[in-house]
Design a protein around this nucleic acid. Sequence first.
DNA 1: CCTACCGATCGGTAGG
DNA 2: CCTACCGATCGGTAGG
Lengths: 192, 192
Amino acid sequence: MTGYAKGRATKGEILDRALEAFAAAGFRGMSLRELASRCGITHAGLLYHFPTKDALLMAALTHRDEADAGLLRTSGTGVEQLAGLVDVVRHNESRRGVVELYAVLSAEATSPAHPAHAYFVARYERTVAHAVDAFAAAAREGALAPGVDPAVAGRQLIALMDGLQIQWLLTGAPMVGAVRAHVQAQLTRPLP
Amino acid sequence: MTGYAKGRATKGEILDRALEAFAAAGFRGMSLRELASRCGITHAGLLYHFPTKDALLMAALTHRDEADAGLLRTSGTGVEQLAGLVDVVRHNESRRGVVELYAVLSAEATSPAHPAHAYFVARYERTVAHAVDAFAAAAREGALAPGVDPAVAGRQLIALMDGLQIQWLLTGAPMVGAVRAHVQAQLTRPLP
DNA sequence: CCTACCGATCGGTAGG
DNA sequence: CCTACCGATCGGTAGG
């Protein structure tokens, strides 16, 4: 019982530190030995919990997804869903590590040989689909500005968020204002 | 004479292949020995031309900049400058390697310790400034839609382009349509 | 979970 | 430009 609970806690801490390490150095640049020493174990101990470096990466990404589950599940109107996406951007400005993680790994993972390539392809399809759904719902509410195509607007919004993350990481330029202005420009009704 | 001219040509070819290697593997993941073998020399031979790996990266980025010089220098009206940016996106869809290079390296270089960190900070300031200038010129022409702030619109456009590059690399989703639609939405006059 | 090891590979240098 | 080397580090495994 104690051993099991302690084992799970340790594993969760390892995954948190693995995310930081992957964010800082990417997949190739991240060293099992350095991460292990940050966790107070040896790199062989790390490989006792996770059989390979690839498996550790996937476990860490799944761990991150579970921690963020429900972050986008704001059941509400289309306009409210879009406001929720703006809130996510605001929230992201308080967690550089998470933003860095996705910026670095999604760029790395564009290579089909990358261990997380399939994960990021699926992640983008899911994220873009969520944004498209939000704009489509806004259209049904009559809140969409004339000429706005939900399919295009959804892809644009996710792209804008990703691009602003790079600029924010590099120069510190704030993200929220630019995202909010862009979303508002697609609507005929003010964001809450 | 011959030696000098041949030396320059070889060096240019090395830099072209270095760009491909950095794009595929990032800075850390790129190996001098593998690049050298692609160039038909040893890794020590590579270090005869470029004293360190850092120096090779910077030389390759400068080489790339020189090849693309003038790509943005479409002297014309603000609306024409914006159309020129859309043309760059169209052009980029025919050179995956270049798009991959900037996507991978700009994400990596968000870390202040990265050898190209200062380069990418300066690059973004320059690129965003160009887009802001284009929108400001469009404003002076009376071509800007009401409520559009050139400073915000410039940052949004560069961010949109970067984000769409990630999506294009990952899923193959075309970039030009979404960029063109976004730029058009900021204007009161049709793009050429 | 550790010690001890494996083969492989890394960037860089000496010396020519 | 090459050969030959340096110390360091890598992911992974055997065996406990």
